[in-house]
């Protein structure tokens, strides 16, 4: 595979170095049949080092996951060998089924078919609260 020459697909650029594999897993890319490259530690003028994921197929990726895990990444949509769209992904205002509420008193603890919805309530401190019970999401 020539990692530089994608005809129709997606290039996720400006990934913080070391987060490429984590995003690959979180985006469920291991389930895809298409050609995918994770390129680690690419020299970058802006970032020093960065990771890149190249997907050689016209699939959709969950930009909420991207924005939540690594705000600042860029998603380039490639069609016919050209970049037709460039999206800068920031911290999403709303997350659906990306993180899960751990509050045992929350309705989502007994009704598991409900979508897990979180709202960004404090951008500076990256605080997400459950839309149902308002519990703050803690990583650990």
């Amino acid at each position: 595979m020539h990692v530089d020459s994608i005809n129709n697909g997606i290039v996720i650029d400006h990934i913080t170095a070391g987060k490429g594999l984590q995003l690959y897993n979180l985006l469920g890319l291991e389930l895809q049949d298409c050609t995918i490259a994770i390129i680690k530690n690419v020299a970058s003028r802006k970032m020093g080092r960065k990771d890149i994921i190249k997907i050689d197929a016209d699939i959709s990726v969950n930009t909420d996951i991207l924005g939540y895990v690594d705000p600042g990444v860029t998603v380039n949509i490639i069609k016919g060998g050209e970049i037709v769209e460039k999206k800068n992904i920031s911290l999403p205002n709303k997350l659906v089924n990306v993180i899960f509420c751990k509050n045992p008193r929350c309705i989502t603890s007994t009704e598991q078919e409900l979508s897990q919805i979180f709202n960004l309530t404090n951008e500076k401190n990256r605080v997400y609260r459950c839309a149902y019970c308002e519990a703050k999401f803690e990583e650990k």
């Binding site: 509050n103 008193r105 929350c106 309705i107 989502t108 603890s109 007994t110 009704e111 409900l114 459950c130 839309a131 149902y132 019970c133 308002e134 519990a135």
Partner: peptide
């Protein structure tokens, strides 16, 4: 008793829902 249950009701009902206490 579960927090957020009235919100779930409001998201699914076609009539107004008043939260009379959720946990």
């Amino acid at each position: 008793p579960k927090e957020g249950a009235p919100l779930v009701a409001a998201m699914n009902a076609s009539i107004p829902v008043i939260n009379a206490g959720d946990g």
